[in-house]
Every structure is written in C-alpha cells, then in structure tokens.
Design a protein around this nucleic acid. Structure first.
Lengths: 199, 199
DNA sequence: CCTCATACTTACCTATTAGTCAGTAAGTTC
DNA sequence: GAACTTACTGACTAATAGGTAAGTATGAGG
C-alpha cells in the first residue's frame, strides 16, 4: 500500500476512533480481555498513542460508558413521543441488533465482570444500570396507565423483570443465535398484554 | 482383589480441590481472569502442580463444567417429586444463593465470555445450557398441565423467558444486591400464575 | 531391596500485559 | 522565527500469563 503517509487537512479524530473500538471490544469481549495493543494495532498506531489519549485503561472504559449513557438518554428522547408498545419494541430491537452483530450490551459484559472492575468503572456501570432500569419503570408505568400494557404486580417489578430478561436473552442469543432470542422477545409481548391481533 | 480398595491414606484430594477452586473462580470472575497461579497460591503448591493434574486451562474448565452439569442433573432428580411450584422455587433459590455468595451461575460468566472461549469449553457451555433450558421447559409444561401454572404462549417460550430472566437477574443482583434480585423472583411468580392469594 | 507410579518442585520459556519516559515531526500562535 | 502545543514513536519496564522439562521425595507392590 503506497498511501503516502500524508496528514491531510481533516485530522484523524483518533480519540473518537479509540472510543469506538473500545466500545466494540467491551460488547464483544468485555473489559478484561482486550488490551491497548488490540486497539493500537487496529488503528495502525503504537500502544503509547492510546495512553496519550487515555492515561489508563480504566479512564478509557469510563469515557466509553459516559458516552454510552449519554447516547442512551438521547435515544430515549427520540422515542418518547411513541406509544408505549412501540418504545418497548424499539428497545428490544436495540438488543436484537447487538445479538445480530455478535455483541451484547455493555451491562451484560461489565455486569458479569463487575467484581473485577476498577472502582470508577463500577460506578459507571451502576449509573448506566440506573438510567436504563429507571427508564423502563417509567415506561411500564405509563403504559399501564394508558391501557397499553396489562400485567400484575408493580410497574417497577415488571420493569426489573423485563430489563433483566433482555440482559439474559442476550446471553442466550450469543450462544444459540437469534431464534431463541426472538422467542423470548415474543414472550415478553405476551406477559405485558401486548399482541392484541396487531399485524 | 475383591477387597474394598480403601484409600491407603487420607491424602489430600488435590484434584478435587482444584476443581472446587476453579469453579469458584468461574462463578466469581469468569474464565479469562483467573490463572493457574491463583489456584496454586490458594492450595499452597506451585503453578506446575496444577498442570500436572490438568494439562491445560481449557481442560480444567471443561472438567469443572462436566462435574457441574452432572451435579445439576442429580439435583433435578432430588426435586423431581416435588410440586412444580416448589421445583421452580428451589431453582430460584439456587440462584439466590449464588448472589448471596457474590457469585453467578457459570452460564452467566461463560455465556458472556463465549466468543473468547476455547472450542471444547464452548461445547460444554452449550451442553449445560441445553440441560437447564430443557429441564425448565419440561417443568413449565407439566406445571401448566397440572394447573399449577397459568400463562400464555408455549411452555418452551415461557421456559426460555424465565431461564433468561434468572440469568439476567443474577447480573442485577451482583451490582445492586439481593433486594432487586428478589423483586424479580417475586414477579416471576406472578407471570406464571402462582401466588394466587397464597401469602 | 528394587522398581514403579504418584505427586509434586525447581527452573525455565515465550508471549502479553498496563504503563512510563524521552524524544520528535508537524502544525499554531505571537 | 521562536515558543508552544498536539499527536504521536521507540524503547523500555516489571509483572503476569500459560506451559514445559527435568529432577525428586514418598510410598506401594513384587
């Protein structure tokens, strides 16, 4: 490849690329498996270049999670006008896409590794989990009030059940493929009283 | 010859102890984090002693999973005479005890790490997942036939939903403690129609 | 007593890890 | 054009990883 190492006008946004690659590793492998060398190799730079942008591995992962959470919050805003069923479906479609891309949500990998994570990263995992579970509880509550959902127990409990189900079903999907994952999604529809003959 | 081959001495059953320690690490940390040195230190022996009993790390983990699966099968036999609700409760109590002991089931850690595992270990993860999900489906099927459970959808789908919920709720429990875990367990009771007026 | 198997230890190997530090080329600012 | 900043490279470290080979202490069986 004779690409003349020129550094053209638009400087490569290395920092953002590092975050992207790290995020992908977190979803495919988790925190403990990937290394700075993996990222550096992919970018065609040296190990030390990653340390220049993020002093430690923990700092890098924390930065990924901050961005991840902010993106989730923006996402909830883009769907908040939709009917409750559509919002629930949209969320499940996010998880579906993870599984299709051989990934799982970071809460799956980092939740599993929780005991082995540096403290600042544990903090971020908690914050993200809070964000997602709180959003879920509010959605279930509104959906029941509006008559879109129908279930027993508190909305909070049902939210916890569905949110954990989505975590677990990603593990199932990772091992067994998309079919079993979709079976679970279908059953979630039933337990919240959706699926009223809608095409 | 036909004599009872008694153990000449209560020699330390190192092989079994290695399996025990490895199993604990798998449930606390997963496969990629622990090392032979961790196990050796705990036993007060050298690294190479572990290699003597299990040639590779993969061999060791496979041996743990074989034992784990056999134990699960024995467990299902000990509860098979109980009513369906009691069996479901007993299973959920197993998960509860994991969480109380800062562990999660091996399907949680190894499912998460699945893409990074050596092939023979992936195989064992699949076999264990099969065993557990199949048992769950049979339980739900019997429970519905007998009128103990009440739910919509196929027993297979409901089994997948509950089994994945138990996986996910262990992740929740690991991060947030036992309270949120128990909330999910309670909600599982509701969605299979247990808890009909019973306190 | 000799031989053998068991259950290790000692010593070592190569690869990889996160992280450091000094140096430098290419802008940017004054 | 000097001073400063940005974005790296190259060379290194100490620790740890999984794994191997050769040697050794112990005890059982013949």
């Amino acid at each position: 490849m004779s690409s003349a190492q020129q550094k053209p006008k638009a400087k490569r946004d290395t920092k953002r690329l590092i975050l992207d690659i790290c995020e992908r590793y977190l979803m495919q492998w988790g925190y403990n498996v990937f290394s700075y060398h993996h990222i550096a190799d992919e970018l065609g730079v040296k190990n030390a270049a990653i340390h220049y942008h993020f002093r430690t591995k923990s700092d890098l992962a924390v930065a990924v999670l901050l961005r991840y959470r902010a993106r989730f919050i923006r996402w909830t805003q883009t769907v908040e006008a939709l009917p409750p069923q559509a919002q629930l479906d949209a969320y499940m479609r996010l998880s579906l896409n993870f599984v299709l891309n051989q990934r799982v949500g970071v809460l799956v990998t980092l939740g599993t590794e929780y005991n082995t994570l540096p403290e600042p990263l544990q903090e971020q995992v908690k914050l993200l989990q809070d964000e997602i579970f709180t959003w879920f509880a509010a959605l279930l509550e509104r959906g029941r009030s509006s008559g879109d959902f129908l279930f027993n127990g508190t909305a909070h409990a049902m939210a916890s059940l569905i949110a954990t189900t989505m975590l677990g079903s990603q593990l199932l999907g990772r091992v067994r493929g998309i079919g079993p994952f979709e079976e679970v999604v279908e059953q979630v529809h039933l337990i919240v009283g959706m699926k009223r003959n809608s095409p």
